[in-house]
Amino acid sequence: ARQTVTTGTVGTDTEDELVTGTVETTSTVAATTTTKNYAREPVERIEKYILEYIHFCTQHMKKLAQSRIQLAKVQMEEYKALEDFEQIASPAQWSIHLVLKPKIKNWSTKNKNYQILSKRVELDMPRKFIEKFDFSFKVDESIISQDEAQATYNEMRQITKKFRIQAMKLHVQSAARENEILSNEIKGIVERFPQENDDGFDAEPGYAAFKQYHEL
């Protein structure tokens, strides 16, 4: 009888090793990538927090720089307007300007002080020479009871607090009055600024230039 021989593909040890090695390599790469992603996420979060912190801490510097730039632009416009006024002002107009200039500078300082004092009152932050006041004295508790002594100390603190409030209130009122007087004086000078021709000078262009300069 004829025998039938069945043939098939026989894998070698080398092929099995290659397949196994490929699977292991792929698994290792995937595991390494996953590990790197897990490690990267906390780093990215920390970087984000650091950037947010830097942005928060430098906001005031950005605002300060922007304010200085804006101030420089205003000062440049003011200087140019002053130059224009100086070129066309009549003698009388220029004399009034020289009288008015220090008053405006003084008003600017007084107004700034008034605003600061008002803010101090709002925040309950008296000036140092007022804050130093502290009305207190020692009560002999060998004679006075503890409760009565404590009531006396409490009254001392109330007197100190009332003094500070009244002192700051008076201080603000004085600053406001100074500001008001200077403002009215400047307003009166501006309203009486010469508009008539002076010794052959046409006063109208000078008056227009002065108004533009003063409004800046």
Rank of each mutant, 00 (worst) to 15 (best):
V5Y: 11
T9F: 15
D13P: 11
T14H: 07
T20L: 11
A30W: 06
T34C: 06
K36Q: 11
K36F: 15
E41N: 12
I46L: 15
E47G: 00
I50F: 15
I50W: 07
E52G: 04
E52T: 04
Y53I: 09
C57W: 07
K62E: 13
K63P: 00
A65L: 14
R68M: 15
I69K: 07
V74Y: 04
M76A: 15
E78P: 02
E78K: 09
Y79F: 10
A81R: 03
A89Q: 04
S90P: 01
P91H: 04
A92Q: 09
Q93N: 00
L98V: 08
L98H: 12
V99K: 13
P102A: 00
I104R: 06
N106P: 01
W107G: 05
N113T: 14
Q115E: 13
L117H: 01
L117I: 10
S118G: 12
R120W: 10
L123T: 09
P126F: 05
R127D: 14
E131G: 00
E131L: 08
K138A: 15
E141I: 08
S142T: 12
I143A: 00
Q146D: 14
D147C: 01
Q150S: 08
Q150W: 03
I159V: 15
R164A: 00
I165A: 05
M168H: 08
K169C: 14
H171T: 07
S174L: 13
S174A: 13
S174H: 11
A176N: 02
A176Y: 03
E180G: 03
L182P: 02
S183D: 05
E185Y: 04
R192V: 11
Q195F: 10
Q195H: 14
N197L: 01
E204I: 13
A208H: 06
A208T: 06
K211I: 12
Y213F: 07
L216W: 03
